[in-house]
Design a protein around this nucleic acid. Structure first.
Lengths: 196, 196
DNA sequence: ATTAAAAACGAATAAGCGTTAGTTTTGTAA
DNA sequence: TTACAAAACTAACGCTTATTCGTTTTTAAT
């Protein structure tokens, strides 16, 4: 009847993945059926299997795409020679941009990774821990350089990550809050606090 | 064969709910089956229905128990006559305590509420928004009293909430981080920042 | 010991799931 | 136009799901 429409330079697998991300975010991975996904794309469920291996593979594509993007960014940042606090600011801003650009995928990677199958689950959690550890190391350097307060670096790192991972709220308030103000406020709050 | 064992002063419904919260947290609501829940409790799946109405009801119990606890706390706090910044500190500390005491339930309320059925879904989101608005109002007062920096109060509120809702990370690091240090660090970071 | 209610059971139901198989249609290049 | 591959279709598989039914067992009060 119909056929899968993909925009230029986008494979059909990518088209399916993006639609899957949208549904996985809205309904959760387990509560999303391949038949629903097929309806959204305008095709029969069985036709999807000409392009993908399994439902699980879709989740893998989404989670590792996001994980790689974040790992790559923090790796690049390690090469740059700027102050620790500037690096932290860049990391926070990158999270904000990523969440706003690839909302569905980032959300799914943050919330649905637990439905990954082994060995992908372990692999994903390793990537995540790698990223967290890089952030913790950065904070430790800042503390030793005395640019950052002497507080538990693990907690500082996790609090920053929690705050930026929670950026979903922004999607529901797009109209009220403009992105520049969002960035300015979050960077200020997380780095210099809210008390005058 | 077996029977549902409940500790003193705990109804069987509560016992089932707590076990459900544990499973919903670990596997997600949709990926948890009533048969799994029954195995955990030591009974046949059909027997559960002598005590509960449906799987969905279990999610309702969990979500609204948590929502009420938080609403009640912030309502009580409204009566107290202390500085705004002290109130914020108390709110942050309450979130930390709640997350550590009722981990499963708080986690499920934070992550699985989307599987609530109407009208409970709307009801829950209203409660949530009510809570958020109370926090925003508090911050606005702080700004007008000049105890809090003049930043977007909505963003400030959501960032605090994101940070404390992300406290799941603590569960995986119980051994490394003690709770007093966790509280101190988070309060300091969220209120006065991390830069020296 | 008798009775009634509460709570367990096993079996069944209907619906939905991911996925496969076989077949037909579509698109492309010779 | 013919031929081949890609991608769609329909139908079905085997399995799992939440829940219901009718029955039996357990518990507690008389």
């Amino acid at each position: 009847m119909s056929k899968i429409i993909s925009v230029q330079n986008e494979s059909k697998k990518e088209t399916i993945s993006k639609n899957a991300a949208k549904l996985f975010r809205k309904k959760g991975f387990s509560a999303t059926s391949m038949r629903e996904l097929a309806v959204d794309i305008g095709v029969e469920a069985s036709s999807l299997y000409n392009h993908i291996g399994s439902k699980s593979e879709l989740l893998q594509i989404i989670c590792f795409k996001v994980a790689n993007d974040f790992i790559n960014q923090i790796n690049e940042l390690e090469q740059v020679e700027i102050e620790v606090t500037s690096k932290l600011e860049k990391i926070i801003r990158f999270h904000i941009h990523k969440m706003l650009e690839d909302y569905d995928m980032v959300y799914v990677a943050n919330h649905e990774w637990k439905h990954l199958q082994e060995p992908f689950l372990k692999n994903f959690l390793n990537q995540r821990k790698l990223y967290e550890n890089k952030l913790i190391e950065l904070i430790k350097i800042g503390i030793s350089e005395k640019s950052i307060k002497k507080l538990n670096p693990q907690v500082l790192a996790f609090t920053i990550l929690s705050a930026v991972r929670g950026l979903e709220f922004w999607q529901q308030h797009k109209k009220n809050i403009d992105i520049a103000e969002l960035e300015k406020t979050m960077v200020s709050q997380l780095l210099t606090g809210i008390i005058k």
